[in-house]
């Protein structure tokens, strides 16, 4: 009997060889997040005359493996703003818990109406992200925040893992910035055209962009969430399916995957 507690429950050295104790060291340098692990791909958002439309697919990838296919990446806040997360899913879940605390304490202070609007929320999250990157321990996310600002005007802005912020009539994160943004920008090149855009038009543009993303982004999914924020609140649909796909363009593309010809 080996009486040393450290040895209990471990494979016997005389049977399996010496255990590699380098894995047990806890006196090495502390290592913070170096890369995201389980990730969500693009989030896209567009302003229209009375609000904001936002969409993100329901996939959480583990590297190139489509690991979880029903992860909802759009999160309403106080029924007045919508948040879209791309990047690390566990950091998204951390932020989600953090925002639950925030919305609860806000609801205690002002039960009858929400007081933190989308602009306030975006400011807060960007400070949170910047604080973490300044500790060299970033939250590996790229967020879109949609809703209304202090004057009741549509608000859409982004914040990334470095704490950078920017705003535009249409925004997209990740692959969407290359693939969806040019399409949305054709419809809303500036604030004036966003003010003329109707709700139906905005939804159609976003659906079209989600379809293009599914065609060309290998880490995407055809099931997605779609949210519309107006002064009346957040309408969130979490089980949308891409419609009217046409893969005709892919007919002559060869040399990928399991193709043998």
């Amino acid at each position: 009997m080996d009486h040393r507690p450290q040895a209990w429950g471990r494979p016997r050295d005389d049977v399996y060889g010496a255990y590699d104790r380098s894995y047990m060291q806890d006196n090495g340098p502390k290592q913070n997040t170096q890369q995201p692990i389980v990730t969500g791909t693009s989030v896209i958002g567009i302003k229209f005359k009375d609000g904001v439309v936002m969409a993100a697919d329901n996939l959480a990838s583990y590297g190139s493996l489509a690991r979880f296919t029903d992860v909802k990446r759009l999160r309403p806040f106080a029924d007045s703003s919508i948040l879209g997360f791309s990047g690390d899913i566990s950091d998204m879940q951390y932020l989600d818990r953090h925002l639950i605390d925030l919305s609860l304490s806000e609801a205690y202070e002002s039960p009858d109406k929400p007081r933190l609007n989308a602009a306030n929320l975006h400011r807060y999250l960007s400070k949170l992200l910047y604080n973490r990157r300044s500790k060299f321990d970033p939250l590996w996310n790229h967020l879109l925040v949609g809703g209304l600002d202090d004057n009741g005007e549509p608000f859409l802005a982004a914040a990334d893992l470095l704490g950078s912020t920017y705003s535009a009539p249409s925004l997209a994160t990740g692959f969407g910035a290359m693939l969806a943004q040019p399409i949305m920008r054709r419809y809303v090149p500036d604030e004036e055209s966003a003010k003329k855009l109707s709700r139906e038009e905005a939804i159609n543009i976003v659906k079209e962009a989600m379809k293009v993303l599914f065609y060309r982004d290998a880490r995407s999914l055809d099931s997605y969430s779609l949210a519309v924020v107006t002064k009346d609140g957040v309408e969130l649909k979490e089980d949308e399916k891409l419609e009217d796909q046409s893969w005709a363009f892919a007919d002559r593309i060869k040399g990928y995957g399991t193709q043998t010809v």
């Binding site: 007081r115 933190l116 306030n120 400011r123 807060y124 400070k127």
Partner: peptide, 12 residues
């Protein structure tokens, strides 16, 4: 004002 971009609620 810095973190939320709004005036602090009086109750807070």
């Amino acid at each position: 004002r810095l973190t939320y971009g709004r005036p602090i609620p009086i109750h807070t």
